[in-house]
Design a protein around this nucleic acid. Structure first.
Lengths: 239, 239
DNA sequence: CGTAACCTTGATTAAGATCAATTCTCGTGG
DNA sequence: CCACGAGAATTGATCTTAATCAAGGTTACG
């Protein structure tokens, strides 16, 4: 494990090398294959996770078996930090569980489990670190609020258009571009099944929506590559 | 303004009287009537709000005019704290806006506007205060995650049943009970129109759902008072 | 007692979920 | 290299839920 790469993790970005070494020391590193479960919502809460490689989906299963993806966590992002700060002391409770399920999405997924108790101690003596935690939570809150708004106020076409635009914008900003991919295209990092669940719909409806946008000449879909053919109209669709 | 009541505000609960006085000194106190706007999403961000009396709804308007309530803020709760911690420095930006609209729901609504810059300074020198902010955000995140899950995975009947149960449980826990109301009943604190919006549906559908639950003998609806007639079946409906 | 806000009820429609049948894609082993 | 089979995606037909449109009823309150 190369300690220096941990600086890429947002919540760790203010930490000294000593602190990073300390965290790495009390953390556990694990590797998973595609479809492996990292934690279930029935398991006792041990600590939060940092994704070091690959991608992880956080999801819930409803009583009738339907799945809904709450969020997707990629390289250097974290999950399950929220329980750390809920009604202090609850972490020590044996009955305290993970709030959702987590599954590895790729074969090379690598994560780091940061134990709750030690991390809390660290944060208590480290104001910049807690400010980072707050900022991370603020960002997540903003995102969730937007997601709710999107799901309740927009139809599937709008949500899909919005998703594509977001991915497109993220790609424009990103430094390391995939050169095998034309600039006006994006590559889905997840299956369409998972994308549908994330957008609050189902695979069939997503498929039809893609087709409609394609028939309208707005996008072109090839496997997991989506090419934008008419950016202004895509923006208009996203409203 | 009685400083000591500020201790009831969760994020202020750890503060000394001196700190509370300081905050009260640099904050602005305002009163509103029902339907008055407290802030629009087009206004520059000044700081966060604490509701001291009455109730405030936080909502968004979609392009076609539909409204969706993101959350309802009652006595001693806060809103618009999230922007405080987004990409530090953005607060100084003239173009930084409130993320949603806020409207007073009652005639006696009283709020306190805590200016961003001064509060940030305070928080930087106060680890317990920042831990409180984190805990508050964590709670909100948990709630939002659950809300998304609920809206995407459950039909309206389930959502309504769940809402009633939550209100019922909250009332059981609460110390100050309204004695004019039977123990198995709850009183809606908002209009059915607003409740519908909060539950991600519309007034007519909510009305029909109440009727169905009433016809099934599960609840009884009188104006804004909802009485639980069959708790086990209500729980079952909420699944 | 009139009017505005709030709520209910009915008829209709539309969006999207469900069910079902294929097809596509790709990795694995013969 | 091909065939097989599993997982992924498409497409069609149908059904369900809830939104929309429309009208009328209730309540609160000046």
């Amino acid at each position: 494990m190369d300690i220096s790469t941990l600086n890429n993790v947002f919540v760790f970005s203010e930490l000294s090398t000593e602190d990073l070494e300390l965290i790495a020391k009390f953390s556990r590193f694990k590797k998973y294959n595609k479809s492996d479960i990292i934690f279930f919502d029935t398991e006792p809460y041990l600590g939060f996770y940092v994704v070091l490689e690959g991608m992880v989906k956080i999801y819930k299963i409803s009583k009738d078996g339907r799945e809904h993806i709450l969020h997707l966590v990629d390289k250097y992002n974290t999950c399950a930090e929220v329980p750390l700060f809920e009604n202090s002391g609850a972490i020590l409770d044996k009955d305290f569980r993970y709030p959702a399920n987590a599954m590895a999405m790729e074969d090379t997924t690598e994560v780091m489990l940061v134990p709750a108790r030690q991390y809390i101690e660290l944060i208590n003596n480290n104001p910049p670190l807690s400010m980072k935690m707050i900022a991370g939570f603020a960002k997540r809150l903003r995102h969730l609020n937007h997601h709710i708004e999107s799901i309740t106020l927009k139809d599937v076409s709008k949500r899909v258009a919005e998703f594509i635009l977001n991915e497109y914008n993220a790609r424009q900003k990103s430094t390391r571009k995939e050169k095998s991919l034309p600039p006006e295209s994006i590559r889905l990092k997840i299956s369409k099944y998972d994308l549908a669940s994330y957008l609050g719909t189902i695979l069939e409806t997503l498929s039809r929506t893609f087709k409609k946008l394609q028939d309208d000449g707005i996008i072109e879909v090839n496997k997991r590559v989506i090419s934008i053919r008419d950016l202004p109209r895509l923006k208009e669709t996203a409203s």
